[in-house]
Design a protein around this nucleic acid. Structure first.
Lengths: 197, 197
DNA sequence: AATCTCACATACGGTACGTATGTCAATCCG
DNA sequence: CGGATTGACATACGTACCGTATGTGAGATT
């Protein structure tokens, strides 16, 4: 066996813990997830956890940052191929669709705000919100959108998408409700468009 | 001393516990609030609590139901004096303003969804959402709003207002941010209006 | 090769929840 | 009117879990 480098195994263990935490937090919720179980599942103890993440919330923050990054990547992908305005709509739709994932919903949308506070002040900076803000800023400066406060518009759009997603996820037939949510979202977003002079 | 009726004192104690819980949950959050402290503050023990509310989450549900009812009343007040459309906008603005209250924000908007699940399935039925749905339904049937799915629109509006409120509350100067949030909200809501033919 | 570092394990204390059991006043009934 | 009964609440207990303080051994350093 090649001699295990120290930093190497540490990063492996960090990744293992984050991975196990994603599962446990998504299934049981942050509050009900046991750190003993979590760590035992990957052959470690709480000692590793507290050494790497400081405390339980530190682990949550790491998990949230990881998922948030993945979400922002997907949202950008969805919006990149299209024009600015269509891109924003596509980002919103993608955001709604992603929130159907239990990990996203439970960890990022529910437990994240409850235990880590306002998303805009997370260590991970809430990359998703940042992406939306940039899109809105472009659209405002090019005159497509009315001269609205950029942060306000971005937070409203994200908030609306988030809530739509929670609704879809809680419904009995997500697949039939999803298009309604997307349609209403996109309709509402048109309210931000600049009026034709 | 008039002989204390049994049911009377029980309801008094229930009210005391709910009142104490509102304070404790708002200040420390649901997870960090100690039931021992809570009950001791009003001269009782956990015995009373588990007898009346079943468990910790039962108490949270009772608190949420109370606050939710108060919020719905205020929102209706705000909207009642005006026309349907202006009423909806006023309700949204009122909703945003109310969310500045720490009790509303922490208990109903953050811990409620995290620990009790989707608001639309709460025992309290989320009266707030119901009020918005009724307003939207009226506006759709009278042709003011585009023929959008009522529940979708209501959830999006509430979600947008909610998120705007969290943003305002987390900002350093809530009073200067509040008008921006309300403006953006009302602008976005116009997207739901029926197009002039 | 001896020493050191540090990632992680182990052990402990404290706290909080939920339940099982006890108790006493308010109510009911003969 | 007085004993039996109910039930609202207190008390006591077991369990689970978090965070910390301390130990340890494999890899890094010299």
């Amino acid at each position: 066996m090649a001699p295990k480098r120290r930093i190497e195994t540490m990063e492996e263990n960090r990744a293992k813990l984050i991975s196990a935490a994603r599962k446990a937090f998504a299934e049981k919720g942050f509050a009900a997830a046991s750190m003993d179980e979590l760590t035992a599942d990957v052959g470690l103890t709480r000692g590793a956890l507290y050494h790497s993440f400081g405390d339980k919330k530190g682990l949550l923050a790491a998990v949230v940052a990881q998922i948030d990054g993945e979400m922002a990547g997907r949202a950008q992908e969805a919006g990149a191929a299209k024009g600015d305005w269509e891109g924003l709509l596509a980002e919103g739709a993608a955001y709604i669709a992603m929130a159907l994932d239990p990990e996203v919903q439970r960890i990022v949308l529910l437990d994240g705000p409850a235990f880590l506070g306002d998303p805009s002040q997370w260590p991970s900076q809430n990359v998703c919100l940042e992406v939306t803000k940039q899109a809105v800023a472009r659209l405002v400066s090019e005159g497509t959108l009315a001269p609205v406060d950029v942060e306000a518009a971005a937070r409203l759009l994200n908030g609306a998408a988030l809530n739509a997603a929670l609704w879809v996820a809680a419904s009995e037939e997500p697949q039939s409700v999803l298009p309604k949510a997307v349609e209403a979202f996109q309709l509402m977003a048109t309210g931000l468009l600049a009026k034709r002079s």
